[in-house]
Simulated scan of single mutants.
Amino acid sequence: MSERTRRGPSLRQDAIAETVLAQGSATAAEFAERFGVSLMTIHRDLDELERQGIVRKFRGGVTAQRSGVFESSVGYRGRAQRDEKEAIADRAMDLVEPGMAIMLDDSTTALAVARRLKDAGPLTVVTNFLDGLNLLAPVQGVRLIALGGDYDPLHNSFMGVSCVEAIEALQVDLCFVSTSAISNGNACHQEQHVVVVKRAMLRSAARNVLLVDHTKLGRTALHRVAPLGDFERVVVDDGASAEALDELDRHNVRYEVAARRR
């Protein structure tokens, strides 16, 4: 199907977002020509993508220049490193056994794990991620516990004091979390209110597993979530460089490398 015949604005917006994330920037005129629509239509698409936090508009075009807000957007995170997240989720499932109580944070990597839980029950799954709740709500064999709190549209999840209190009332077997940066032996994140929720999740679990794609290794973020030693293991994809893995070794981190599908 040609680009001109793509149906509906959502498909066109997905293609625009993928292009901008790959190239870094583009012009509205380029997209109008590519999709055979008016500049006004493209600007409406860009307005919606900007509202989601996926792109930033400037006069005549759009950019994927990163910022803390940009990288926190669930729209951006859902589009980034998809193959890597799928590989990590496949490897993470080796740790899941029937009868477990599992907690998932609001990361899109943990959401990839959630997609694989449909046939792994019976399970109890606890999460604050609305995407995960919607995904697992109709699944038989999964007892689903929703962590309430203040709804955060940027992350499409629930945060705040009420969420933390709900987490503290639970004790789960296994917790899967992800963070935006790994550096100096620590898992870090750029947003304080997200860190508070992740820390509470880690305290509530008997075993904690960190799921991070290779782009997170060697990056920095403002707030420390936890030392890597607090995790039973770290699961990373095979895009990780030898230097990045050596850094994990230097901090005595137990890690597993998940192979991407070729």
Rank of each mutant, 00 (worst) to 15 (best):
T27W: 01
T27V: 04
T27L: 01
A29Q: 14
A29V: 12
E30Y: 10
E30H: 13
F31P: 09
F31G: 04
A32W: 06
A32N: 12
E33P: 03
E33M: 11
E33R: 10
E33C: 01
R34S: 07
R34G: 02
G36N: 12
G36V: 06
V37G: 14
S38F: 05
L39S: 12
L39G: 15
L39I: 09
M40K: 07
T41W: 08
H43R: 15
R44I: 03
R44D: 10
D45E: 15
D45G: 09
L46A: 00
D47A: 07
D47R: 01
E50Y: 04
R51V: 04
R51Q: 15
R51W: 05
R51N: 06
Q52Y: 05
Q52D: 10
Q52I: 07
G53L: 06
G53W: 02
G53T: 08
V55L: 13
R56K: 08
R56T: 11
K57C: 00
K57F: 00
K57Q: 07
K57Y: 02
F58H: 15
R59A: 02
R59W: 08
R59F: 04
G60Y: 02
G60D: 05
G60P: 14
G60E: 06
G61T: 11
V62D: 00
Q65F: 04
Q65V: 12
Q65H: 10
R66E: 15
S67Y: 01
S67A: 13
G68C: 10
G68N: 15
V69I: 11
F70R: 14
F70G: 15
E71V: 05
E71K: 03
S72D: 14
V74N: 03
V74C: 02
G75L: 02
G75M: 03
Y76K: 12
R77C: 13
R77S: 13
G78P: 11
R79S: 02
A80D: 15
A80P: 04
A80G: 07
A80E: 15
A80Q: 13
A80T: 11
Q81N: 15
Q81W: 07
D83F: 05
E84Y: 03
E84T: 06
K85L: 02
K85T: 07
E86D: 15
A87D: 11
A87N: 10
A87F: 07
I88T: 08
D90S: 12
D90L: 13
R91G: 03
A92N: 12
M93Q: 07
M93N: 06
M93G: 03
D94E: 15
L95R: 13
L95S: 07
V96K: 10
E97Y: 00
E97C: 03
P98V: 04
M100I: 02
M100W: 00
A101T: 15
A101L: 04
M103E: 00
D105H: 12
D105V: 09
D105N: 13
D105F: 07
D105T: 06
D106A: 14
D106Y: 08
S107W: 00
T108P: 13
T108S: 01
T108R: 01
T109H: 00
L111Y: 10
L111V: 05
L111A: 10
A112N: 11
V113C: 02
